[in-house]
């Protein structure tokens, strides 16, 4: 538990319930998200891990009939980002997301990374150029694309597209980055490069990642929450979860006995 003692709290879910219409998809979730650490959410399909992740940037607001109960507080200002008074766009300005499938926009590589800056009203060429370069370097893509920044992003390979999406999410200096199974659509080599990248980012960014792949969770994360049927069964240090879990259910899942 040494890591959790040192870490400061970036965000915290407090007794969070979530409903798709009448269906209660999340039941009383309470976990902390530590600053500049990677927190992994694992669990079998349909356990609510992606649903939980998408609460953090209010993605559920895009569809009618969805409802939140409880709180996710975001520090340092200790604001409940699920409150109806909070503008979801303000939340998304602070918390960015990388999706399961690479989803670059039909624009050039440069404009893809600059997108988040442009929607914030930043249009000054020199600022954009600098931030795009830094983001692409942080996403370990700069060397591969620096000579063709104005090519269409669709011409990149799948792994490059996903790193482009990571660069896009990095460019806005997010307080938290959400990764929703970022490697599930990629081949093993591209997956390895994304994992390596996350390892480099972990000291500078707060990351929350959903993954199906338990080895991935074990490799990259500092903390892990095991979810089952809309509840958090166990939350702890990743090392503890994978070596000596408190709950039998967790052990069954990580040893592959179900799920």
């Amino acid at each position: 538990m040494s890591a959790s003692v040192q870490a400061t709290l970036k965000a915290e879910a407090k007794d969070l319930n979530f409903y798709y219409g009448d269906f209660k998809a999340l039941k009383g979730i309470s976990i902390p998200v530590h600053d500049k650490k990677i927190t992994a959410l694992i669990g079998p399909s349909g356990c609510g891990k992606s649903t939980f992740l998408r609460c953090f940037n209010r993605m559920h607001d895009l569809y009618p009939g969805n409802r939140y109960e409880g709180e996710i507080t975001l520090n340092p200002d200790n604001v409940n980002i699920l409150s109806p008074k909070v503008d979801p766009i303000e939340v998304r300005m602070r918390i960015s997301m990388v999706f399961q499938k690479p989803n670059p926009f039909p624009k050039s590589i440069f404009e893809n990374v600059a997108y988040g800056l442009r929607v914030r009203g930043i249009n000054k060429r020199s600022v954009l150029e600098e931030k795009v370069e830094v983001a692409l370097q942080n996403a370990a893509l700069w060397n591969e694309v620096k000579d063709r920044l104005h090519d269409l992003a669709f011409n990149l390979s799948g792994g490059q597209q996903q790193r482009l999406c990571i660069a896009r999410a990095l460019a806005i200096d997010p307080e938290i980055m959400l990764f929703d199974e970022p490697t599930s659509a990629l081949d093993p080599i591209a997956t390895a490069s994304i994992e390596e990248l996350m390892d480099e980012l972990k000291d500078r960014f707060t990351i929350l990642i959903v993954t199906h792949n338990m080895q991935q969770a074990a490799r990259v994360s500092d903390f892990t929450a095991f979810m089952y049927l809309g509840e958090v069964v166990e939350y702890n240090d990743t090392k503890k979860i994978f070596t000596n879990p408190d709950k039998q259910q967790t052990e069954d899942y990580i040893t592959g006995r179900f799920g």
Partner: peptide, 13 residues
């Protein structure tokens, strides 16, 4: 929809 979600997730209106 995943393209729209990508845009909204970046804070776009």
């Amino acid at each position: 929809m995943h393209l729209r979600e990508g845009s909204y997730a970046m804070g776009a209106t």
